[in-house]
Amino acid sequence: MLISFCLNGELKKLNISPNRRVTDLLREDFGLTGTKEGCGTGECGACTILADGEPRLSCLMLAAQLEGKKIVTIEGLSDGQKLHPVQQAFIDYGAVQCGFCSPGMILSAAAFLRQTPEPSRDQIRESISGNLCRCTGYQKIVDALEAAAKIMQEE
């Protein structure tokens, strides 16, 4: 089937098999391998993308569901010049270790912080509850997101 959607700011029109998983479409057809697959069953959150600004698990989405949507992957989160405040805070606050969960975690958090400019630490933890991380113990991730929230408010 023919679908059209906006991917990281560019309009895409393509013929696809409607039951193709969005994770595979992004990673294989578009080479956007920043979208990770950690489980393939919607449990770990590594494959999170933004669809019309909302975090979605791309491993549970079929390509047909992209129709008319505005999709942002980790590659499209920054403007190409400067990293998104959440990305920068992840670097500055040591929220990254192995990094496999980072893209999904960052996208979930970026969407949340846009809607909740002054979050509590509990709200921050809840916002990334669907994104598993094995390395960090989440402490520095929450620190980073607290800092990013302040920076996003200033901007």
Binding site: R27, L32, T33, G34, T35, K36, E37, T73, I74, E75, S78, L83, Q87, Q88, F90, I91, D92, G94, V96, G99, F100, S102, P103, I106
Partner: peptide
């Protein structure tokens, strides 16, 4: 000090075996 590997990882550019 920030980690040298962090920028690539947060930008989704680090290449894991999956990629």
């Amino acid at each position: 000090a920030p980690r040298p590997d962090a920028p690539e990882k947060v930008a989704g550019k680090a290449v894991y075996i999956q990629d």
